[in-house]
Design a protein around this nucleic acid. Sequence first.
DNA 1: CACGATATGATGTGATCACAAAAATGCCGC
DNA 2: GCGGCATTTTTGTGATCACATCATATCGTG
Lengths: 231, 231
Amino acid sequence: MNAPIAPFDPAAERPQGETLQEWVYQQLRQAIMVGRFVPGRSVTIRGVAEMLGVSLMPVREALRRLVAEHALELLANRRVSVPQMTPPKLDELCAARLALEPLAAVRALPAIDAARLAELKRIDAEVDAALAASDVETYLAKNQEFHLTLYRAGDSQVIIPLIESLWLQFGPFMRSVLGRIGASYVLDRHVEAMTAIERKDPLALRLAIEGDIRDGMGSLSLEELINAHRS
Amino acid sequence: MNAPIAPFDPAAERPQGETLQEWVYQQLRQAIMVGRFVPGRSVTIRGVAEMLGVSLMPVREALRRLVAEHALELLANRRVSVPQMTPPKLDELCAARLALEPLAAVRALPAIDAARLAELKRIDAEVDAALAASDVETYLAKNQEFHLTLYRAGDSQVIIPLIESLWLQFGPFMRSVLGRIGASYVLDRHVEAMTAIERKDPLALRLAIEGDIRDGMGSLSLEELINAHRS
DNA sequence: CACGATATGATGTGATCACAAAAATGCCGC
DNA sequence: GCGGCATTTTTGTGATCACATCATATCGTG
């Protein structure tokens, strides 16, 4: 009756030295980020444990961690499920991203040397390639990698985790929307950001990141509205 | 050799219907917030379980949740310990608070009616009373209650948890500093915030909250500098 | 006396089990 | 045929145990 799709990579090898729980956490996290869990459906400990071939213990802790990071939600029934996106929540996520990500970018700016800039350019090329190939999944992965590589340059111990929590929340929604409308209309402001970095211009970098977020989230909000009208 | 102090309330009753793990979480959270764990010392599962009179299971999950919320940190040894405050971390916490809390306040502003304003005034009076009595612990609790009551008015599902994570990180440090220098020099801008609320003036509210954060964190940074010079 | 190897204890991780509550299922009466 | 109730199954929570690993203490040797 259950199991409409297999949410996990079948060829997922576990690096040794890593705890089993950490591996389960990473598997679940990735599955959530690419939207392999349908919102509203409850995720059971035993179900995940069986699918991954592990015991209940690591799954329990991984699920609880994801709940603490707001990637999953804990219902009053004590069941965990994939949270559904709502317009006010999307609005909040947008506002929070606009508050934190430009801040992280500007704080990281002084720490970006030539090597890091080259890495950013390499990742951005992969983003463009994924867009050209209409490969939604790698586009999302590489886009996230671009942002987080930029922010991580200034080694923030506080702000980065907050941003990661935000991406974990809106990631699956973005994935599902892009999966429907395609990645054709997606434009980013990564080159704008990189020229700002080259000029060491904090304000321009801030504006580029703000624009990038606004563009992306704006199209999502639009899609959300369209979807609301259809139903 | 261990157990210099008892970190928990001896008279802590557990409300029924609540899971044991949730109770342990609350106990640990409160103990951390009032600085009853010394930073750098490792918190062991069995130790906490013994002190609270529960088995290992609920403690494991509570600790893991607190680690996910960055109230505790997970060392490479797989031991959890109370993180120590560092100047760059404090700087980041200040920046993140300045980015998120005024945003939350302004977003909550339209939802603050007369009843909520009265509640804020009541809490602020308790803050002042605690300050007058030099009662650091209740001052911190009531100050936090004031801020969170304000922010929670607009029912943010996203931003509030981020702010709570921040308070959980700098709370114990603030506690330890105020415990040393006393609460005599503490001034807040709560009345400024409340007049801004009465006037429905978003900009004034933003400035009041920013000022409140800056004043508080500024004195902490100063103390941090003094402390660094001493050692 | 200092340094290092070994042994002992402590600790985290993972597995299995027992139990209570909730959900799903089936059944009977209307 | 359908709704309400009892039974069965599923599920989360908590407890206990086994094992590998790490820290500490102890002891031997240079």
